[in-house]
Amino acid sequence: MSEAGYTNLRRVLENGHFSFTAEIGPPMSGSAENVREKARKLKGYADAANITDNQTAIVRMSSIAAGYIASCEGVEPVIQMTCRDRNRIALQSDLLGAYSLGLRNVLILSGDHQSFGNHQASKNVYDVDSVQFLDGARRMAREGVFMGGSKLKDPVDFFLGTTANPFADPEELQLIRLEKKIRAGAKFVQTQGIYDVEKFRRWMKLVRERGIHERAYIIAGVVVNKTQKSIEMTAVVPGMDIPEHIIGRMRAAEKKDEEGVNIALDLIGEIRTIEGIAGVHVMAIGWESIVATIAERAGMLPRPVFERPCAFRGE
């Protein structure tokens, strides 16, 4: 029997399995088929899939709509919600909407600044920051109240998560902020894509020293690059440190896509051994078909299944 906030991802983690999640980037169109196609490639290979919320501030199908479509295909979504585009009225309304559709994993983040996207002239909202929104979402679920203080008519529940960038500055303050996010309500944390394992190892040591990994599941992000261009573009993202030996590997490789997969597998292999890591989150945006291969070659199959998405069950 499923309970309101019990998602497959939550059960996987709570039962001590090493989680394996993937990502679906909604299309720059209203095509449900596009989402279905991506979801079909992940079904049975990932415990859940993040549905990004207008990532890099480029307009795409809403994460909730795309998440519902994915759930109809049998892939449990993790709905990403950024604080960039919506005030607290819209954020809470969308949380209720997501809940009503059976979408219970919610990943709360600040969101890429709109100056990176294709609507640079837009207003940046940030009525609340991600800590404040996590706190609001947790209070909706735990205390049954909206941020404005009034009561919800019926209870809701969510499995709340957030992000962390192990390579951002200042290091100590980033950890303090991560702890605040956990105090505010985050139960799982997905990190920025890891390339520099040594640096990540040092960060995880600090995480363990603070006991953060005991208060939330730390899931390491791994990006899969298909081309030289894609790794080079990732390398220029501020705070994304890609060691030269990895870029060099890609450069030297004849078959870039194969080498991209090999790099991702090596990273997963190294990351798995780090104490305090609860799972990996594979980001293969635009290359969903490779996730099954990675899951298999990384020894992640078969995936345990605790819950099937409500929409898939026909609820």
């Binding site: 600044h113 100056s115 940046n124 800590v131 920025q192």
Partner: peptide, 28 residues
């Protein structure tokens, strides 16, 4: 740039804001 009240976003790097290297990260 995001009017954050609880610390820097993940775009703070070397004391600078990711949106413009001429802008110092307020939270740094």
């Amino acid at each position: 740039c995001k009017s954050h009240f609880n610390g820097p976003c993940g775009g703070s790097s070397g004391g600078k804001c990711e949106i413009d290297p001429d802008i110092g990260c307020a939270w740094q």
